[in-house]
């Protein structure tokens, strides 16, 4: 569905994108991860036909973004990271405007708009001025706007930025629904850890280069050479931490008020032996488990090369 080959973008002397290659099959939800200024928004702008690449090819559904922008626009719903709304329009008028801009006949829009408002939980706000909506509602309205022409691809640049936790959860639920509808979704987000369960693939971008790319599970397992074990003892935790430090497979020990975090290089067998050892030392262990590495850890691991804590 989306095919990017050797894509580069240069601003003067600054390389915003360096030789990006990316293929996203139809129906995939692709998470774009990277620090600010890494090139996520640039890539998305190029896919949205708002920016021309310096070199390379980007295709959406077989149409080159520079050669057939009009065809590409028909197939994408783009939500920029920062966007405004026309304050003096009412919610339905706002959607009518964009619907008309996509050449959707009025009769069809009349049917479509209530459905879209239903999807993004704004049915009760259909007759209020866009100005009076909260940030999260505007974000959802913008998402409804992206969907009005039933695009195959959704390009969502930070759709949850600036949202409170409740609004983020609502956004996530909507995205899940969209995934079930079979949309191909590219999403860059700070809430990627939250999205982990619905993202099929991720691409990690840093300094304009793809650092890692693939299925979430693959990347996670590839990186999980070092486990983090979380240990809690009834008492004498500091003493235990000091003793664990000297163990062979342990690379680092950090302790805080939640317990002891042990960076452990061994496999399952060594892990069992470590637990037996701790018990044999006479410590009362409350819990001993492998800490969940989430996408955020993966991201930190890849971009900084540091330990995932």
């Amino acid at each position: 569905m989306i095919d990017i080959q050797h894509l580069s973008k240069r601003y003067g002397n600054f390389d915003a994108l360096k030789d990006i290659n990316l293929y996203i099959p139809e129906g995939t939800v692709f998470g774009f991860v990277g620090p600010n200024g890494a090139g996520k928004s640039t890539t998305m702008s190029i896919l949205a036909t708002l920016m021309l690449p310096t070199s390379g090819i980007a295709k959406v559904d077989g149409f080159d973004v520079t050669q057939h922008p009009k065809e590409v626009r028909k197939r994408i719903g783009y939500m920029p990271d920062f966007f405004g709304v026309y304050d003096q329009l009412k919610t339905t008028e706002y959607l009518h405007f964009y619907g008309a801009s996509y050449n959707i006949p009025r009769g069809e829009r009349e049917k479509l708009i209530p459905q879209l408002l239903e999807l993004v939980n704004l049915s009760d706000k259909s007759d209020v001025y866009v100005d009076s909506l909260s940030r999260g509602m505007k974000q959802r309205l913008c998402l409804a706007r992206c969907l009005i022409h039933d695009p195959k691809v959704l390009i969502l640049d930070e759709p949850a930025s600036g949202l409170d936790p409740r609004a983020r959860i609502e956004m996530r639920e909507i995205l899940k629904e969209l995934k079930q509808m079979g949309k191909t979704i590219i999403i860059s987000s700070h809430i990627l850890p939250e999205l982990a369960e619905m993202v099929d693939e991720i691409g990690v971008i840093e300094h304009g280069q793809m650092v890692a790319q693939g299925r979430v599970a693959d990347i996670q397992s590839r990186l999980r050479v070092k486990k983090v074990l979380h240990v809690r003892a009834m008492e004498r935790e500091e003493e235990l931490a000091a003793r664990l430090q000297d163990e062979a497979m342990v690379s680092a020990v950090l302790s805080d008020n939640t317990g002891i975090h042990v960076h452990f290089g061994g496999g399952d067998l060594e892990q069992v032996q470590l637990l037996q050892k701790i018990i044999s030392w006479g410590y009362a262990v409350i819990s001993f488990h492998e800490a969940q590495t989430n996408l955020e850890d993966v991201f930190l691991e890849i971009t900084k090369g540091g330990p995932a804590v």
Partner: peptide
């Protein structure tokens, strides 16, 4: 400046 242009430009107009 109101950040509505990019969305307008991705429509079919």
């Amino acid at each position: 400046e109101k950040q509505t242009l990019s969305m307008l430009l991705t429509t079919q107009q």
